[in-house]
Amino acid sequence: MADINKNSKEYKKLVKKVHPSQSKFKNFLLAYLIGGLIAVIGELITMSLTAQGLPLNEAGPLMSVSMIFIGGLLTGLGVYDRIAQYAGAGTIVPITGFANAIVAPAMEYKQDGYVLGLGAKMYNIAGPVLTYAMLSGFTIGIIKLIFA
């Protein structure tokens, strides 16, 4: 029993020695700044659309579609993953992270074919999120219908 604890302690020392130390504050700051920058880009798109005369209730959805397109394009070009290495959750939380969650598996499984690869695996990451969102929306709609 003593040998197990000794080996465990030695292993933890080795992991601590080999694993680079990460600053949680630095990670938080980068996620906040990059996530905020993504939000600013979305707001700039919305403002430019409303400046062109588009009503806000139409500019909002168009901005969302534009941000999804930008996220998907950057994922396809390999840029989004490099940004995510530094920004962490700052790239996962915005709507561009949703695009990344769809496009990345699609690119990975494309060589397996369009049906069994791309079609079957594209929603590996985002599928459960979409299912939960639709189920939640349906449930809230039923509750509102009953009690409102």
Results as ranks from 00 to 15, higher is better:
Thr139Gly: 08
Phe98Asp: 00
Ala51Cys: 00
Ile143Ser: 07
Pro105Met: 07
Pro128Thr: 02
Val103Thr: 03
Thr46Gly: 09
Ile34Val: 15
Gly36Gln: 06
Gly72Met: 11
Phe25Cys: 07
Ser64Gln: 12
Glu43Ser: 10
Asn27Tyr: 12
Met47Glu: 07
Gly42Met: 09
Ile95Gln: 04
Gln22His: 13
Phe98Asn: 01
Gly36His: 10
Ala120Gly: 08
Ala106Gln: 02
Leu54Ala: 04
Ile4Glu: 02
Ile70Lys: 10
Phe138Asn: 06
Ser64Thr: 14
Lys16Thr: 09
Ala51Pro: 03
Gly60Val: 14
Asn100Gln: 04
Gly71Ala: 08
Asn57Ala: 13
Leu74Gly: 06
Arg82Met: 05
Ala104Asp: 06
Leu14Ile: 09
Lys9Cys: 00
Ser64Val: 11
Ile143Glu: 01
Lys12Leu: 03
Glu43Ala: 11
Leu56Met: 14
Val115Arg: 01
Gln52Cys: 11
Tyr80Gln: 01
Asn57Lys: 13
Phe28Met: 11
Gly72Asn: 04
Met67Ala: 00
Gln111Pro: 04
Asp3Trp: 03
Leu77Gln: 12
Ile140Lys: 06
Lys121His: 15
Pro61Asn: 09
Ala106Gly: 13
Ser136Leu: 15
Ser21Thr: 14
Lys6Gln: 02
Leu37Met: 14
Ile143Lys: 11
Asp81Thr: 07
Val129Gly: 04
Val79Gly: 00
Ser64Leu: 06
Gly78Gln: 07
Leu145Asn: 10
Tyr86Ala: 09
Gly36Asn: 05
Met67His: 08
Phe138Pro: 06
Asn27Ser: 15
Ile146Lys: 03
Tyr132Ser: 11
Gly137Leu: 02
Lys110Leu: 14
Ile146Phe: 11
Lys6Thr: 06
Ala59Gly: 07
Leu62Glu: 12
Phe25Ser: 09
Leu56Ile: 13
Lys24Met: 15
Asp81Leu: 07
Phe98Lys: 03
Val40Asp: 04
Lys144Gln: 10
Ile83Val: 08
Val103Gln: 07
Ala126Asn: 01
Leu145Arg: 10
Gly72Val: 08
Ile4Ser: 02
Asn7Arg: 01
Ile146Glu: 01
Ser136Tyr: 12
Phe69Met: 14
Ile146Asp: 00
Ala133Gln: 03
Ala51Asp: 09
Gly53Asn: 07
Ala59Cys: 03
Glu43Asn: 10
Leu118Ala: 12
Val129Cys: 04
Pro128Tyr: 05
Gly72Tyr: 03
Lys17Asn: 08
Ile102Asp: 05
Gly78Asp: 05
Lys24Ile: 14
Gly72Phe: 03
Tyr132Cys: 11
Thr96Ile: 06
Asn100Val: 03
